[in-house]
Amino acid sequence: MLSLVRQFVRLLTGKVDASEFALGIFFGVMLAMVPTREVDPATGFLGWNGAWLTLLAACLVLRASLPMTLVTALLVEPLERLALGRASFEVGRTLLDDVLPQAFGAGAAVRLPSWQLHTYWGLGSLVLGLALALPLSLGALFVLRRHLPAWRERLGRNRLVRLLGSSFLFRPIKWLLR
């Protein structure tokens, strides 16, 4: 937990810009919403949901803030457990049964089965996740672009923050996360 706080503080006081924060929020929401395991047995990628693995790879390759991704995912996960998971399932059921043409579900099952888009939960979580993640990350982008420099300046003057951020242990991580 202390390490997480250290990294988070360094990011706030460092060169991470608003878009990286926004991407972190986006991927945090998506990774928490989409199920990790395959929903339909024997159609995933080595037992994992291909869509979740793709999101994770995209998050690592794109310059999304990893601490922000983690924090967002940890915040959204309980909500997903409480209500959003059930809501995802219902959204997926409505889409596959009543809204989308049958060719979509059948095509997804045959051509891209590992993504689990042919399952109620798999499709619903992606759609609902996007519906939550896009406005959240865009809103964060808008707010952070306006206020991040001021926050950094204020935090940069704080002695405790300077102490936490100067540890040599985190320099390689900083390079990787750049």
Binding site: P35, R37, V39, D40, G85, R86, S88, F89, R93, L96, D97, Q102, G105, A106, A109, H118, T119, Y120, W121
Partner: peptide, 10 residues
């Protein structure tokens, strides 16, 4: 799984 299931036509 918490929410398994897929349409019959799939």
């Amino acid at each position: 799984l918490r929410f398994p299931g897929k349409p019959e036509y799939v």
